[in-house]
Design a protein around this nucleic acid. Sequence first.
DNA 1: ATTTAAACATGATAAATATCATGTTTCTCC
DNA 2: GGAGAAACATGATATTTATCATGTTTAAAT
Lengths: 237, 237
Amino acid sequence: MKKPIQFETGCAHCNVRIHSVFNVLESDQMNEMVMHKSCSTYKKGQYVFAENGLPTGLFCVNSGKIKITTTGFDGKEQILRLAKSGDIVGYRALISNERYASSAVTLEDATICIIDKAFFFKTMESTPKLMFEVVKKMSRDLKEAEDHILSLSQKNVRERMAEALLFLKATYGFEEDQKTIGVSLTREEIADYVGTSTESCIRLLSEFNQDKLIVLNGKKISIINLPMLIQTANIVD
Amino acid sequence: MKKPIQFETGCAHCNVRIHSVFNVLESDQMNEMVMHKSCSTYKKGQYVFAENGLPTGLFCVNSGKIKITTTGFDGKEQILRLAKSGDIVGYRALISNERYASSAVTLEDATICIIDKAFFFKTMESTPKLMFEVVKKMSRDLKEAEDHILSLSQKNVRERMAEALLFLKATYGFEEDQKTIGVSLTREEIADYVGTSTESCIRLLSEFNQDKLIVLNGKKISIINLPMLIQTANIVD
DNA sequence: ATTTAAACATGATAAATATCATGTTTCTCC
DNA sequence: GGAGAAACATGATATTTATCATGTTTAAAT
């Protein structure tokens, strides 16, 4: 496994911090944080942390896209969550004082900071606002997980596939053309989120393509009929 | 809908508090809490709170068993979580300042306290330990939800059914006989957790019965071959 | 640039599971 | 304690989806 390359930067000027849980920190706390974090670059496909590893700190994504995955009993991968710039990653195991139950892998080249465990815990204790930000993040992730449970439990593969495309769009947005989903996943990765086989995933994307809901161009997926895609997903609200 | 019957009790002697997030409070905070909470009894099948309602406080289960459910687009129920004595319920929407995304319904007669929203928030802010307890509870719920996602995504109905029985046992334990699962659910409710049809649920329970993994007696389910049930569930660790 | 592997694609088939139909049993409420 | 509803049960059938097989395209590494 390739090693990430480390370097140091200040947090005060970090343009990502504004959109992260650390936005609530005072400037003196921020200056202190610089001494308790380090920043690394990762190539596409590298592990940020791996299942069963011990957390040593909190990861905060500066740039790049990350998938959080766990492994089923026959080795099949399950994508649980996706992260982007400004998101904290690996907080659950850290807070629960457990080994990682999932892995984090970069979907493209990324820059990620790791904040020292002791400093993070100390700051959380002294700054209820920070802890509250973490609580709110966890709350959103829990809501998302429960939506996913409902979907996996009650919807068919076609509906889930449409929903997955909408989820990807909601998470990463569109590219400049305002229709191409801002992340490139393999068909297998999409299947690993949707909970279906790679073949079924490929077939359904082709169908959506034929039905003029989307346009496929390699790994690039463009949504050209959003209302119809929403209808296909059978969204409640 | 029947109204729950209210009454007042002290928190200082509450034998459930020890196993709840409020265990970390100081005795003066406890005495203050008595004035900011009220306790109610609920009959089996009553709603504690309902989807789309606005949270007014935090529920803490004193006695009884609760299901947390959400409704799919065709009205089909999904059981997301189960709660028992000592558990807090309805905390996610409260903390996120949102309407309830799920409902809580009693599975048997229950006694449940509601702690006033303002008092709860104030105490969380002044007592990081309390907030940390809530964080840990949410962390466990998130882990459970992610396990559920993996299961729904990668396991077949038979495996999920075995897993569900083990989950019920883990949550509510056995009765005095050390084999009968300590909760009574309808086949439909079990199906609503497992993510299958009621008929498939009934069929699989009959099969497990025939295969001498369990013994059925009305709604009572006794596990008589735990190792084989674990094997049927294909548990990873 | 060429080789090699991974990703994508599609048809045929098998397996899993839902749905429909119908009957029985067990609760629950006057 | 009896009427009615809900829950349980089981067979037959239809549908969905996975799996297997095989070929093509694309991307990565030497």
